[in-house]
């Protein structure tokens, strides 16, 4: 079952989400009208450059955007419940329980003075009233699931006694403790070696399918997401500019930005070709161009691009925001 069927249950539905930061210099619109959905067992790759608002989108879902950031519009439906209307107490019962998160830097996400056992047992007990022995049994089980050998003894160790890859496995095991409906992974393999990264990627993919979880994999690396995700959403300057099935996005992108991202990544089947570049750099969040935010860097921009591009919805929920979509032309050339 590489592709979840059309009828499978929607776990998360984000509509027109807006998260802004009030700064002395002005209102930074980090997330400015983002819509997407995630189904059970589906992996959504959320791709974009740093500053595109992809991490803030992730933190908005579990209500952990640091001040001065705040939600200013839209809705986030998690299994029918609007998370933006939920109280802090309701959110806390969901966090780590129904919605889990994995962070970027495995060196920093575990408390250095507490053992892995403490981390895991407290996470179990935060959401279920079971005995400590039962909590420990489940924690060991979760460690075994992510491929940590001798989990009974390793669980007594402290974070500094694990390598980076192992630490990230521990973080993934913690996320799996309550068999959540949704996992938000914020660049979880960026800090790791390539070999460790690919191991973790394939394991996560298998676990996600087996347990029927929705997964949002946030990454700046299109190559990582290409081998992992079912769907890809490409973010640029606080908006999703294009989203659709992985094959559609990679083989026939409509948005020039997506095409630029694909062209700028080295790939085995294009050996010897010159890598293309997207000219210029991402606009400062306070000085984004009017209309399409990408038009100043785009080779195809026209006067029409001075207007805000609306979202066009195609077959298989394929959506793009562009006045001059690339059509059938081969984007990688």
């Amino acid at each position: 079952m590489s592709n979840p069927s059309e009828t499978s249950e929607i776990v998360l539905e984000v509509t027109d989400l807006k998260t802004h930061f009030a700064t002395p210099a002005g209102e930074v619109k980090s997330v400015d009208g983002v819509s997407f959905s995630v189904r059970r067992g589906e992996i959504l790759g959320l791709v974009g450059e740093s500053g595109s608002g992809k991490s803030i989108t992730g933190f908005s879902i579990i209500g952990l955007v640091d001040p001065p950031g705040r939600n200013v519009g839209g809705s986030i439906l998690f299994k029918g419940e609007d998370l933006l209307a939920a109280s802090e107490k309701q959110l806390r019962t969901l966090r780590g329980n129904r919605i889990a998160m994995i962070f970027q830097d495995p060196m920093m996400t575990l408390n250095p003075v507490l053992s892995v056992k403490t981390h895991m047992v407290e996470t179990v007990l935060a959401h279920e009233s079971v005995s400590r022995a039962e909590a420990l049994r489940r924690s060991i089980e979760a460690l075994r699931m992510v491929g940590i050998s001798q989990p009974e003894t390793r669980i007594e160790s402290y974070p500094h006694e694990f390598s980076g890859g192992m630490r990230q496995r521990v973080a993934i095991a913690i996320a799996l403790l309550h068999k959540p409906d949704l996992i938000i992974a914020d660049e979880p393999t960026t800090a790791l070696d390539v070999t460790i990264q690919s191991q973790i990627l394939s394991e996560v993919q298998v676990l996600c399918r087996e347990l029927g979880m929705g997964l949002i994999w946030i990454s700046h690396d299109l190559g990582v997401v290409a081998g992992l995700a079912d769907r890809i959403a490409v973010m640029y300057a606080g908006r999703i500019v294009e989203q659709g099935d992985v094959d559609q996005i990679l083989d026939r992108p409509k948005h020039p930005y997506t095409a630029g991202l694909i062209g700028s990544a080295p790939a085995a089947n294009r050996r010897g070709e010159r890598l293309t570049q997207i000219r210029g750099s991402a606009p400062h969040p306070l000085r984004r161009p009017e209309g399409c935010a990408f038009r100043t860097r785009c080779d195809f921009s026209t006067d029409a691009c001075l207007q805000e591009p609306t979202e066009t919805i195609g077959a298989a929920d394929y959506r793009w925001r562009c006045f001059n979509p690339l059509g059938a032309t081969e984007a990688t050339s």
């Binding site: 806390r92 019962t93 966090r95 889990a100 996400t109 935060a126 973080a171």
Partner: peptide
């Protein structure tokens, strides 16, 4: 308080007291 492990603890649903 601003360190990642505190945010991760929040993301795990721990109480502020803990």
């Amino acid at each position: 308080m601003p360190l990642d492990f505190v945010k991760f603890a929040k993301a795990r649903g721990l109480s502020s007291r803990r």
